[in-house]
Design a protein around this nucleic acid. Sequence first.
DNA 1: TCTGTTTGATAGTAATACTATTATTTTTAT
DNA 2: ATAAAAATAATAGTATTACTATCAAACAGA
Lengths: 223, 223
Amino acid sequence: MTVLQLRLNQKLYAKDPQSTDLGSRIVSKGITLIDKLGFESFTFKKLSIEIDSTEASVYRYFENKHRLLVYIMTWYWAWLEYRIQFETHNIEDAKKALDIALKIIGEEKKNDDTFPNVDEAALQRIVIAESDKTFFTKQVDEDNKEGLFKGYKSLCNLIGNLVAKVNPDFHYPNALSNMILEAANQQVFFANHLPSLTEISEDNSPFDKLHKFITTVVFKTIS
Amino acid sequence: MTVLQLRLNQKLYAKDPQSTDLGSRIVSKGITLIDKLGFESFTFKKLSIEIDSTEASVYRYFENKHRLLVYIMTWYWAWLEYRIQFETHNIEDAKKALDIALKIIGEEKKNDDTFPNVDEAALQRIVIAESDKTFFTKQVDEDNKEGLFKGYKSLCNLIGNLVAKVNPDFHYPNALSNMILEAANQQVFFANHLPSLTEISEDNSPFDKLHKFITTVVFKTIS
DNA sequence: TCTGTTTGATAGTAATACTATTATTTTTAT
DNA sequence: ATAAAAATAATAGTATTACTATCAAACAGA
């Protein structure tokens, strides 16, 4: 198995966490802790205790916990983008390519050996519960200017292009992609916590029905 | 004009803010302040200064700021539900009824004289920027058990029923309604702050295109 | 071995999210 | 009109959070 590293936008960190041992412990324990405590209760103090280090040291890598969250989410989106590009490579049929992309977006994530020391399953749980917190702040505009959301935009754009290839006359390829990307996570959250809101919860695993739901919406809408 | 009051679930507050003058100042100034500062920077301390009262007094009405947010959001959802019921009353044609509901969901909100001293326009801005913060917490399940989300569920259910009436064979009426309800707000947020993510931003006002987008998605999907 | 980089240790601050107590004012019930 | 009850204000206090600053120790590379 080839071992890869995703290169992320420098603006995301104060000091590259992939460059040192402490840095990678911050990220991987950060994922575990945010998953466990939820983003609100997660603090750098608690994280520094977990990794036998100090608050001050964590601050050397990330300006604040919001930046760490954005970093982690960006890793996830870059990972999805990479996988979609890999899996749709050499596929001529536009419909088939879009279908593959939707499958990747909506499936339950298992640990990927290509990226050891990242717990993709925990990551997906964080994405489901916390990813919108990257955008929905008063400083979105500044964060956006700094390029913090390039990863998400790039993924959204990729799906948008696949949609546009299937039906070049459809007026809202990006809006649809964005909506689906959001819904894929939110529907799982609602299925787990407010099940009366969605039929996705009627199965043992929400992911099977989720896939059917999003493919139905996408292909019907652009047909 | 008839002046109305929406009755909200008792679990939403420690003491009914509609029962006293201080209570209604808490809610209406709360809306203004959350709109201005964003939910993260909003505090009961700041609110108490604005209304010439004290922190302790605010705490008598709401356990914490999250509860105040849920209260405000619930008011909004109840308001939408009331308006949809009002506007679709006596409409026989299921498609037409659904179309009316979608219009109400996706339109820019103006102040409604039926409910004086509520700034519906500010409220919509809060819904767009903050509403998901009601759900996406570690205490969702407890909050749900207490019935805090009944308002949202009820609205979602109403739309779900309208969808099911148009096409009783469609498998995901609730999932679709839930997705659309979320997307109607998120798309406006993205249009305002990350415009490259959605075609909704291409117009002067995002609301015109938003309406077209959501009706396209809904009617195509269930056709 | 000198030099620079990284980390650890420690300390400190303003703000937040509350809780508690008591005094004062306002409302209501008789 | 008055007493009792309820609501509010005033004040104080606490643990935690989200940082910033300083300095020393460890270590890595040339």
